[in-house]
Design a protein around this nucleic acid. Sequence first.
DNA 1: TAGATTGTTAATCGATTAACAATC
DNA 2: TAGATTGTTAATCGATTAACAATC
Lengths: 208, 208
Amino acid sequence: MLRENVSGAVIRRMPKYFRYLDELHQNGVAKISSRALAECMGLTASQIRQDFNCFGGFGQQGYGYNVETLMNEIASIIGVNRKHKAIIIGVGNIGRALIHNFDFYKCGFNLIAAFDADRALCGANIGGIQVHHIDELEKFYDKTPIEVAIMTLPKAPAPQMAERLAGMGVRGIWNFTNMDLKMTNKSVMVEDVHFADSLMTLCYRISE
Amino acid sequence: MLRENVSGAVIRRMPKYFRYLDELHQNGVAKISSRALAECMGLTASQIRQDFNCFGGFGQQGYGYNVETLMNEIASIIGVNRKHKAIIIGVGNIGRALIHNFDFYKCGFNLIAAFDADRALCGANIGGIQVHHIDELEKFYDKTPIEVAIMTLPKAPAPQMAERLAGMGVRGIWNFTNMDLKMTNKSVMVEDVHFADSLMTLCYRISE
DNA sequence: TAGATTGTTAATCGATTAACAATC
DNA sequence: TAGATTGTTAATCGATTAACAATC
């Protein structure tokens, strides 16, 4: 796996490749050409071959790509086979929705605990996930270090919480606060889910 | 407002501009230069001026931009001042989370109703929003046409629902199904919120 | 007027697409 | 072998950055 100088644009396409290959595999498709994959994904064959060759040559001239092999390669490139430990901070509506509906495991994560500032919720078990008080965060981390924190808490405490998590040593933050977190430690990766930006983009596009 | 040949990259940045200008305005900041805005948003001054000039000249040489004026211009460019009517299809966890927590109004929308296939939920009022049975969708639309549908329903019925909505005449779909909707009618705008793709991107980035 | 900062053109950079030799 | 399709290089396209004249 080469994995150097891979552009953000390519990285953002990898999950989509994984998604389509997973589906093809489940449908019993054994091989696919860049051309056919391009057709069904709405990309160009050229782009697909360029993208894959950022990480190595997974195909075979004259044949195409073996769907299962390629899917596994991409899974391993993304790292979804590694099952990183994650916790969720804030069990309001969005937090609960994620706990109940979202397939963390398929995305390479193992959700192991939830935290909230509301003492009334502590000790509760939501969808199989134990809720702890936020004060116990560091104690928990010392026993069980986690790689990623999911921030589904209100805006106000968010910046401070992000720094606290970074200080503890988390590697990444999945950010649902709809605000940009300015991390002092740039090695902590932040992935934003900006609902408002997304909906406003739609607003623009339907306004012609 | 020129608004021709505006690239997708520029459009995606508009909500972010709006967000920052709104905050500056609330903090009582009256004027700002492209340089200062660039600094606080993590962009370049050049890019900001290029972006704004896709839609017209909102600044003043030697002075900068009036924050309130610029904010209002951008609000009007995005269309958030128009309050498009919207409905939500599926009141599971994600649907409820949006109804309870999300500020549709600020993003230019007026959420007027919810629909679900589960008869047990029909007639209920969730966070001020009436839940109707999905069978009444067309009847409802005939009386009250809406511009946008928010799809927070399971994958299985999603493709058919998208076509049904397009057939009725909706202009846009905010898609939470985590699948790509292939619309036959290309004039229906689809904006995806791909949780899984987002988290997998983070997975890649923390895997070095 | 002098200083500041825009609007806009030109230069650079990066990403996508096209082409084709290599090869299964 | 002939046909197909990759991996990879070259060409194109678009987006970002730099530069600077216009002007408040």
